[in-house]
Nucleic acid binder design. Structure first.
Lengths: 211, 211
DNA sequence: CGTTGTGAAATGATTCACAGCT
DNA sequence: AGCTGTGAATCATTTCACAACG
């Protein structure tokens, strides 16, 4: 067995920042950028940028910097976004509806292909060009379309149960909007968005500034 | 000048997790909990839990653990959520509307008191029991009501400009939904929710599992 | 007893600083 | 000359392990 590359978690989190900034720089017709410039735009040091990239290989040219276009492609390949990912949305309440139509997913390589809910008043209605299907259909459609990513925007009391069913259907990554720590088996990723926690974080910072 | 208490960033981020878990335990009529149990529920070690609490004082009883009810209050006080925070929402598009009506804010101590937008088609309409006001009114209403926290859900190209105006109006914490790093002065906090980045994170994890 | 609070050790991440490449 | 890639040093966080305590 080949040794599995060791990636520091902070590095992994910064990858998408680098890609986004590099794409913005490409729009300005820049050809290359050095680690100091790139770092400054993102609030990082040049050394950190270089270390991060060095985790994955040798991409820079001494005396020049990083050639933007090929680096973007390398990053996309590393992150797995050099292809399109089909995404299922489970829970078509307000948040589910808003995220189903989120316009920036497409150009980042994510494509919402199915929306599920269990509310009879919602099933059958149109959300972001998709007819909302009953949750029971998940088990059939997710394997059928080989969907690997799901967005889970359901009430907290049913989120774990639905997460279990998503995993059983073959999902390997869940973007969770419920304020709980989902229990998932090894090999399944969970990324959480928790509005209340985010505001609490701000309240805390703001309070500290007065102490 | 008294020494400012040094709080590790990871500790600060975990505070809201502790509070939420403790409140859930309180619902089950438990009186006390020890660091190991609390840690297990959150995917942390007992030592980490104890270190985190020890940052702020001495809350536990040897041989017993932590008495849940008073610890909750202490945590709320530390985090600044022992009172209600008024919040302004700027940007009443799909995400702004969904978050304006987010039902869990109230019981976490956050109260959306004003919604602003610049779209004439939206101004004047009702969003979560608030009449949407023109953005120009921000500068008057935020100081008037002494609002300190804002949720910024506007298109990326105007987000920095609006952040500047929020700060100028007296806002000290911004929950930002646009995929950019907002530039804010010292003393103003920014917490970001970035749906595309979250999905990219998942795509990356999922890809790694196949390498 | 069982569990806290905490120094000391271990691990992890960032920054420094510079040899070596273009 | 300018900038990368990277060991070595620094700084931060987590884990260990145990004395002290109720």
């Amino acid at each position: 067995m080949g040794d599995r590359l060791k990636i520091p978690k902070p590095t992994a989190r910064r990858l998408s920042l680098y890609l986004r900034e590099l794409e913005a720089l490409k729009e300005t017709n820049l050809i290359s950028v050095n680690s100091g410039q790139l770092g400054k735009a993102l609030g990082l040091t040049g050394a950190q940028v270089r270390k991060d990239f060095a985790t994955f290989g040798t991409f820079g040219r001494p005396g020049v910097g990083y050639i933007i276009e090929p680096l973007c492609e390398q990053l996309r390949q590393i992150m797995g976004t050099d292809r399109t990912w089909d995404v299922a949305v489970v829970g078509a309440g307000k948040i589910g509806q808003a995220i189903s139509g989120y316009p920036r997913f497409i150009d980042r390589g994510f494509n919402v292909v199915a929306v599920f809910d269990n509310n009879p008043n919602i099933i059958g209605s149109e959300v972001a060009n998709h007819t909302v299907r009953p949750v029971a259909d998940m088990t059939r459609i997710i394997p059928l379309r080989n969907i690997k990513l799901a967005i889970l925007s359901v009430p907290v009391d049913v989120s774990q149960e639905l997460a279990d069913r998503l995993v059983a259907s073959g999902i390997t990554g869940i973007l969770n909007f419920a304020p709980v720590r989902l229990q998932v088996p090894e090999g399944v990723g969970v990324s959480s968005v928790d509005f209340s926690r985010s505001l609490e974080q701000l309240a805390f910072e703001t309070s500290i500034n007065f102490s």
